Structures are given as C-alpha cells and as structure tokens.
Computed example of a mutant assay.
Amino acid sequence: MNHNLTHLPERPAKPRESGLTMVMDKGLSLRQAEDFLEVNADKVDLLKLGFGTSIATPNVKEKIKLYHDAGLMVYPGGTLFEAFFVRSQLDDYLRFVDDLGLETVEVSDGSMVIDEQVKCEMISRLAKNYRVLSEVGSKEAGILISPNKWTSMMEQELAAGSWKVIAEARESGNVGIYRPNGTAHTALVRRILAKVQLEDILWEAPKKPQQVWFLKQFGANVNLGNIGPHDVIPLECLRLGLRGDTFFDHLPAEMAEGVRQIPEDAEVEDD
C-alpha cells in the first residue's frame, strides 16, 4: 500500500486469525472471479461458494484453483453439507469435496434440525482432515435460540474442532444475530462474547450498517463474513477509517476536536 497516511489501524498480515473477511460467491463466472481477484485477493481470507452453487456453477474446479492460487481458503456453503447429510450421503459429500480439491468445509444446521451432539461428532470427524467452520443459528426468521444455547453450541463446536464458529445471518442479514429490520441483537452479541473469544467468531454482516456496527463495537480487526464481491474494498475502507461512517474512529482526540460535523438539529451547549 503506497501512502504516507498516518493514524490507520494495523491490519494483520495473511494468514491471520483476526480481521478476517469472508466473501460469498453466489455463482461468479471464471472471468468475474479473475476480475475479483485482481482487485481484492490481498484483502480476502475466506471464499464461500454460497449454498449449493458449487454443484450448479460451471467450471467450478477451475474457479476454485484460481481462488486457491490467490491464497484464499475456499469452502462450500453449509447448506450443501446439510443437503448431503439429510440424504445420508456424508461419504458422497466428502468425495465431492475432495474431488474439488477443497481443504475447508462448513458444518451447519441452519436449514434442518441436527442434534448438537451429532453435529459435534461430525465436526470432530471432519476436523481430522479439513479446516472446519461451523455455523450456529437458524435461517428461519421464526426460529429463536436463547443466548445460553447460542453460547453453549459455540463453545461445544469449538471444543469439537471448529477453527471458527459462524454467527448466522444469511445473505439477507435479517435472521440469527439480527432482528427482522437488520439491526443487531446487541444483548445476544454481548452474551455470546461473555463466553466465546471474539477472534473465534466470524460474524455474518452482509449489510453496510451491520459492518459499521461491528467495527465500531469491536474494532478494525473483527471477523466479518457474507461480504459481497463488490463490497470488499468498501469494507476495507470502513476498517481503515477511510469512509465517513468510521472516519474519526482511529484518530486521536486532539485531531478530531473541533472538526466533527454536527447536525443542525443536534443540541449544542452554549460556551
């Protein structure tokens, strides 16, 4: 990065444990993947082939090789794992993953019910040969999980061998850790973090206001996922304080004093 701009937060070098950015590929072509990597490869850590797109997308092996050659960890979405699991085809799933040359997998139960003990057994089994991410939370808006259960599941799955646990939000960003209007369940997030380390969690945050909220709460190097391919650089600018939403977040107080813009309807104390 060729600049002399001061007061930017330090971003860990890849491979890293925190400050992760996970992008969802919902069916990019080879040409689109090449264009995406030309601009974003150094800023992305994980590339999820969303839901069942790794079956439906042509030239997927070639695309995965592009991503791997660029240093990205690639994995199929958890919905695909569930599609094989519900059909009792786990061995077929593993053959499919191996045929694609993937070293990372996701274990989830967002679309179906899987007993937590069984899920943890799957994680332990897969963790012997793959990097495992596991996802907690339902994709259905009406399914509510208590904070205690959220934290318990995350703790159990990390203990079973998950590298990171994913906090569910879908690409719509209105379920799981978010309310139907897209705002964060702040109490739930706080309860989770009382028991689970921040760097062990990948928070799905597909919408800009959600990204801003997590960055303001937990800093530039919070792990964020379900980022759209066109939103990687905008997110990196948010992390660095190079967008209006986070402009003052990394500046010293004396530099920000007197230059913040104040809305006209805000109350201003008399001198």
Rank of each mutant, 00 (worst) to 15 (best):
H3D: 05
H3V: 06
L5W: 13
T6I: 10
R11H: 11
T21A: 08
K26M: 12
Q32N: 08
V39N: 07
V44M: 02
L46K: 04
L49A: 02
G52R: 12
T53H: 05
I55D: 07
K61Q: 11
K63W: 04
L66G: 08
Y75T: 00
P76H: 08
G78P: 05
F81K: 06
F84T: 09
F85T: 02
R87N: 14
V97T: 09
D98A: 07
L100K: 00
E103V: 05
V105K: 03
E106H: 08
I114E: 00
D115F: 02
C120A: 14
E121V: 00
R125T: 12
L126S: 03
L126K: 01
A127Y: 06
K128D: 06
N129R: 15
Y130H: 05
E135N: 02
G137P: 06
S138G: 01
G142W: 08
I143Q: 12
I145G: 00
N148R: 13
E155A: 07
E155R: 07
E155N: 06
A167S: 10
R170F: 05
E171W: 10
N174Y: 10
R179M: 09
T186N: 13
R191L: 11
K195T: 10
E199P: 10
E199Q: 12
L202Q: 06
K207Q: 15
L215E: 03
Q217D: 00
G219Q: 06
G219V: 07
V222L: 01
I227F: 00
P229N: 02
I233C: 02
R239P: 09
G244C: 13
F247L: 15
L251F: 04
P252C: 06
A253Q: 15
A253N: 13
E254N: 14
P263S: 03
D270M: 10
